[in-house]
Amino acid sequence: MSSRTINLTLRVWRQTSPDQAGRFEKYEAKDVSTDASFLEMLDQVNEELVNRGEEPIAFEHDCREGICGTCGIVINGMAHGPQHGTTTCQLHMRQFRDGETLTLEPWRARGFPVLKDLAVDRAAFDRIMAAGGYNSVNVGNAPDANSILVSRTVASDAFDAATCIGCGACVAACPNASAMLFVAAKVGHLATLPQGQPEATKRAKRMVDQMDIEGFGACTNTLECEAACPKEISTKWIQKMNRLYLKAALISDET
């Protein structure tokens, strides 16, 4: 495959700190290899900015392999850009045309305050996890292999939900900035496996309560989240979470 280079115009959200107003700034990204990833393109732009003595564009990144969930930019109104099932770091410049103008914005949600430029504070997700996204019942030593039978379909179903990397694209894409898909994936993967079932309802209740405290919106079933999810997690998990939440709230004997 031959590599080409393209020139792009970037409209980037610049914001110096959480409490200051942001604005869009224009930058030219010249001679960008179509084999470069989106973040490599930003690295290139930042290098020029630093050489000119300007403040580089702040954005989050870590593994650059699409598995850590750190990166995330809204590109032309789409969380993680136009390609489906991809994180921003795994989005490549061959997805764009020469001469295109790209608008880069941070995730926008009350639960995700902007720290700087394109970087947002996603500690709300950590607090939701801390509220109940784990197993805490003592299950003793590691059991003998195959003593707890889990069918192939159940295991892969649980794994589908467990692939959530907590990037927050669901919140970014939802018109209501709802965190339901994230919380549902976390509630769902544990509730699908035998080890997570003793606490399934309690976990759903605690995590949903924390989600509400963090100020995320409600689900209006627009299905924007599953379309933006880099791991293509199904919204069916939201229905499972709703069932578990209602069970915890209305049927359990906890008052």
Binding site: R11, W13, F24, V74, N76, G77, T103, E105, R108, A109, R110, G111, P175, N176, A177, S178, G215, F216, G217
Partner: peptide
């Protein structure tokens, strides 16, 4: 309120 600001695009 949860959305906060709107997207430019």
């Amino acid at each position: 309120k949860a959305r906060g600001g709107s997207y430019a695009v």
